[in-house]
């Protein structure tokens, strides 16, 4: 790593003059300036994947859209995070997610503490225009402390990343592809039979929906703690 001081870039986000270091993303700088850009797959401290596409923003001068979570700031860049076009895309993407799983908030343990739900509320989604696909998915409650409900999984892979990158167990991964993609523990066996799972619960706490939850939580009782991740990450950096 070079020891040269990072260069600072100045840019505009939503017509506000802001600045960021050259290795920072649009999302980093926006958050520092309390500009809210929605995202479901991104968690600071985990490698970015750019898969949920909710953080897409416009950059003046380009017809393309850019994922704010992986696009680095550039000098003179003019970023638009809110527009009618973006709002309509974000809504449709959320509607697609709702149509693809079996998300019934009213009976969900994460009701009221769900990132998918609150994003939908923020974007004013009150109905889903796409037909529900009603995949027949299972609930795995074999783990002593946790449950995975594939019906509520949006495949953001936060669990996969935190387990591999932070806990180091790599119990989770994704199997299959396309609409048949699922999260799996070890060799697609019951979570409770996993020999690699340390039961640390990081995956559960980072899951944005009610897909990974603590056992025994009743409806709307599952609220998650996310503060541990920045803590672990900063403690590790401090130790270096």
């Amino acid at each position: 790593m070079s020891t040269a001081p990072a260069r600072v870039k100045t840019l505009k986000i939503d017509d506000r003059d802001v600045s960021g270091r050259e290795e920072e993303t649009i999302l980093d700088v926006a958050r520092q300036n309390r500009i809210n850009i929605p995202t479901l797959c991104h968690v600071p401290g985990l490698s970015p994947v750019g898969s949920c596409r909710l953080c897409l923003v416009e950059i003046k001068g380009s017809p393309k859209l850019f994922p704010a979570c992986v696009t680095l700031v550039r000098e003179g860049m003019e970023v638009v995070t809110k527009s009618e076009r973006l709002a309509s895309y974000r809504k449709m993407i959320l509607e697609l997610l709702f149509s693809d799983g079996n998300h019934i908030c009213a009976v969900c343990v994460s009701n009221g503490n769900c990132e998918l739900q609150s994003l939908a509320q923020n974007l004013g989604i009150d109905s889903i225009r796409f037909p529900y696909r009603f995949p027949k998915l299972t609930v795995d409650a074999s783990h002593q402390r946790f449950v995975v409900d594939h019906n509520r999984c949006i495949l953001c892979a936060r669990c996969v990343r935190v387990c591999g990158e932070v806990e180091g167990a790599h119990t989770w991964d994704l199997m299959g592809r396309g609409t048949s993609m699922r999260i799996i523990s070890d060799m697609n066996e019951a979570w409770g039979d996993s020999e690699t799972c340390t039961s640390c619960g990081k995956c559960v706490q980072l899951c944005p929906t009610g897909a990974l939850v603590e056992k025994g939580k009743s409806v709307a009782e599952m609220s998650k703690k996310k503060g541990f991740l920045p803590y672990i990450v900063s403690m590790r950096e401090g130790r270096r």
Binding site: W172, D173, R177, M187, T196
Partner: peptide
Amino acid sequence: DEQALRFVAGALRVPLSQVYGVATF
């Protein structure tokens, strides 16, 4: 088969879930 996947995972030191994920992708 499962036995083979476990053996390959162990010998190449690739996490089990990753081996399964690749095999099904």
